[in-house]
């Protein structure tokens, strides 16, 4: 690549990053504006204040926001955990075993993944109310599993396929049962895949709005995205924009943290040196 070309790539890259980050910058800036400042017609707040944050954590919006935050964390973590565990076994079987209906499982998983959420919400709403799952944690965890499992199975089986068969055969010859070989050799080797899958699954669950708003009614199980939609201003005539922006910033933080924390592990080529490099 010539210098000139390189310079263009850099400029282009910066432009794209700016473009992608501008909404986030905008949200952060909004969250720091006082209520009278919101419509100041400029990007930066005239004076940065923490009012919005105090409002959602200790003020009027806190009854709405704090339980929602707890719900979101709890529900998403549980859904991610279950989905990782299940998809690990499913993906292992898909990558390693030859059985009838393997393709069917994969394509069904894909089918479920692309099925529009909104078309299931209404029947689920009715069903959940009948069997008492409406507005409970399991009532959200189960539909979240349907969102996260397909993609988890797909990513995880891609990772399992990368692990050389011989690893496992070596373990078996060394005296391991199938389960021991799986737990002591395959799972550690698949760890980057498990992390990646977990993060993707967590994001999907974390971002859900449709299920969150339709299958809950109180702070018993309402997740953050749904709660954000219910924020109201201090008075009838005031927009809740500032508080919503502040909550949005707070919700983004775990996502960013997760990625920063685990990007090493995700990228780490743990299988290096397993076979002749």
């Amino acid at each position: 690549m010539s210098r000139r070309e390189k310079a263009w790539w850099i400029v282009g890259g910066i432009l794209i990053v700016l473009y992608a980050l501008s909404p986030i910058a905008w949200i952060i800036s909004l969250s720091l504006k006082g209520s009278s400042d919101i419509a100041n017609q400029s990007f930066l707040p005239t004076k940065a204040v923490w009012d919005n944050y105090t409002q959602i954590f200790t003020g009027t919006a806190s009854d709405l926001f704090l339980p929602a935050l707890r719900n979101s964390f709890g529900i998403c973590l549980i859904a991610t955990g279950i989905s990782c565990l299940l998809s690990m076994f499913a993906a292992y079987a898909i990558a390693r075993l030859d059985f009838r209906g393997k393709r069917l499982i994969l394509s069904a998983a894909l089918g479920v993944a692309i099925f529009p959420v909104i078309s299931i919400v209404t029947p689920l709403f009715n069903l959940w109310r009948q069997i008492g799952l409406y507005d409970t944690w399991p009532g959200l965890i189960i539909p979240y599993l349907s969102l996260t499992l397909p993609i988890s199975i797909w990513t995880m089986s891609a990772f399992f396929r990368e692990i050389p068969w011989e690893m496992e055969q070596a373990a078996q010859v060394d005296g391991a049962t199938t389960w021991q070989a799986f737990r002591r050799v395959i799972v550690p080797l698949a760890a980057p895949g498990v992390f990646t899958t977990a993060i993707i699954a967590f994001f999907i669950a974390w971002n859900d709005f449709a299920y969150g708003i339709s299958l809950t009614s109180t702070s018993a199980s309402r997740p953050v995205p749904a709660a954000l939609g219910l924020f109201s201003g201090a008075s009838q005539f005031q927009d809740p924009t500032g508080a919503t922006a502040a909550a949005a910033v707070i919700v983004t933080i775990p996502v960013v943290l997760l990625v920063l924390l685990f990007q090493r592990r995700i990228v780490a080529g743990l299988t290096n040196g397993a076979v002749k490099g």
Binding site: E166, V173, G175, L270, V275
Partner: peptide, 20 residues
């Protein structure tokens, strides 16, 4: 008998060492 019950040891062509 499964491999583990045969008590043989094997060296694979690409060694199959456990990288972790």
């Amino acid at each position: 008998l499964a491999p583990r019950d045969r008590n043989l040891s094997m060296v694979f062509q690409n060694y199959a060492l456990y990288p972790h």
